[in-house]
Amino acid sequence: MKTSGDKIELLRGTLDLLILRTLLLGPAHGHQIAKHIQRNTDDVLQVEHGSLYPALHRMERKGWLASKWASGEGKRELKYYRLTAQGKKQLVVEELKWKQVVNAIARVPVQAES
């Protein structure tokens, strides 16, 4: 159910990186973040709400994100998340970790599929 078609389940830990990258562009609320990730990966990466909100709350607790309630488009009050200074530092760390992962995977020889 979680992986269907060509949609890829997020690698553990990459969600944090994606959220941090998204918020580098400016404050956003949860749904925007999810949509942004989905759009920018051509729908390849789909963010489950089940993991998005726990991740947001966890990162807020760690001090990487700050939040505030503000009226968005329409009459609704929405919870907007933004990067903190600490969060920007964390983004650098996460980027580094990600590169390591990618490099590591690249070094594993690929067997051609017939």
């Binding site: 949860g30 749904h31 489950e48 709400h49 089940g50 909100y53 609704r76 009050e77 929405l78 919870k79």
Partner: peptide, 22 residues
């Protein structure tokens, strides 16, 4: 509130709550 908001967006887009999960 946060989750209800999210659901509202979902509903606008796809018309069902399937993606909601539990």
């Amino acid at each position: 509130r946060e989750i209800q908001n999210h659901l509202a967006y979902e509903a606008q887009e796809s018309g069902d709550r399937r993606a909601l999960g539990n």
